[in-house]
């Protein structure tokens, strides 16, 4: 049978196909570039140095563990703050707030999402970190906590905006069924609406965390950038140094092709792997086989 599709349509289909494949291609190319520039670090820098706890690259100390843990501490802190706030705000906007308030809040949150992070950094230096120092009587306010607070500020709009969309797509009939059997509004939200929007909310959380682990400018300005191993309980209120801040502040100066340069790319690979793990875990949860009860219900 002859293909009846008009030429223009076939071109459009092909065009869309190419853009779809190109994102895969770009990820592969970026990965190739990262590995080709970062892998030499494993041979050039002694493993003892890489696994060490001192990061002082101008004298060939390349201990990356403090940087990895530094990033994790800030990101976990940001997640602990941002997830309850973000999801809570989304539930309020979608389920509780009256229509007029909804129409004010949603655009406001989206404006917040477009706020340049360097401005948040200024806010951090001038307001957040001095107040943290006074509030907790710390030696300095330039700490992981300041970074976490500001990163939460960056992650929250993403989480709110996407979670709210997900909650909105839950059919009204679900809620009506829940109210019909006598559930309160809170029981409906917690037991019906939120689980039904689970995959969307989870995507929102992952994207929010993804934004905060990759965020550079803000953490560079407020975390103090001291490459200390954050293993004590008070590490949260001490200065730390993240992987992103290290790459950003050192890449401009480093001699192309030197060990330091390759180690910075190695840090890039680690960052890439971390976000890959986060994403894979997320999709594993989202796409897991529904339980039997859920299959019957849906």
């Amino acid at each position: 049978m002859k293909d009846q599709t008009p030429l223009s349509e076939r071109i459009i289909t092909r065009g869309i196909q190419i853009t779809g494949y190109s994102s895969v291609l770009f990820v592969v190319l970026i990965l190739y570039f990262l590995i080709s520039q970062g892998a030499p670090a494993l041979f050039e820098a002694p493993l003892k140095s890489l696994a060490g706890i001192r990061w002082y690259p101008i004298e060939n100390y390349f201990g990356i563990i403090p940087l990895i843990l530094g990033s994790l501490v800030v990101t976990i802190g940001a997640a602990v703050i941002a997830i309850p706030f973000g999801v809570g705000t989304a539930i309020f906007i979608s389920e509780v707030a009256p229509q007029w308030l909804k129409e004010i809040l949603k655009p406001l949150v989206e404006i917040l999402a477009g706020f340049p992070s360097v401005m948040l950094g200024f806010l951090g230096i001038l307001v957040v970190s001095p107040s943290l120092r006074r509030l907790f009587d710390l030696p300095t306010g330039l700490t992981a906590l300041a970074g976490s607070l500001l990163l939460a500020g960056i992650a929250i709009p993403t989480i709110v905006s996407i979670s709210e969309d997900a909650l909105n797509t839950v059919p009204r009939s679900y809620r009506e069924a829940s109210w019909a059997i006598g559930a309160t509004q809170w029981q409906t939200i917690w037991g019906v609406t939120l689980p039904a929007a689970r995959s969307g909310v989870l995507t929102a959380v992952i994207l929010g965390i993804g934004r905060s682990i990759g965020e550079t400018m803000t953490v560079m300005m407020v975390t103090g950038n001291a490459p200390v191993l954050p293993i004590h309980l008070n590490s949260f209120i001490s200065p730390i140094r993240t992987m992103t801040a290290t790459i950003a502040s050192e890449m401009g100066e480093v001699a192309t092709g030197s060990t330091h340069y390759h180690v910075l790319f190695l840090i890039g690979i680690i960052l890439f792997l971390i976000s890959l793990i986060v994403n894979v875990t997320a999709s594993a949860i989202v796409f897991r086989q529904p339980k039997r009860a859920e299959r019957i219900l849906s």
Partner: peptide, 9 residues
Amino acid sequence: FSMDTLLLP
């Protein structure tokens, strides 16, 4: 430098 020296950009 002591490891807890803050390095500001």
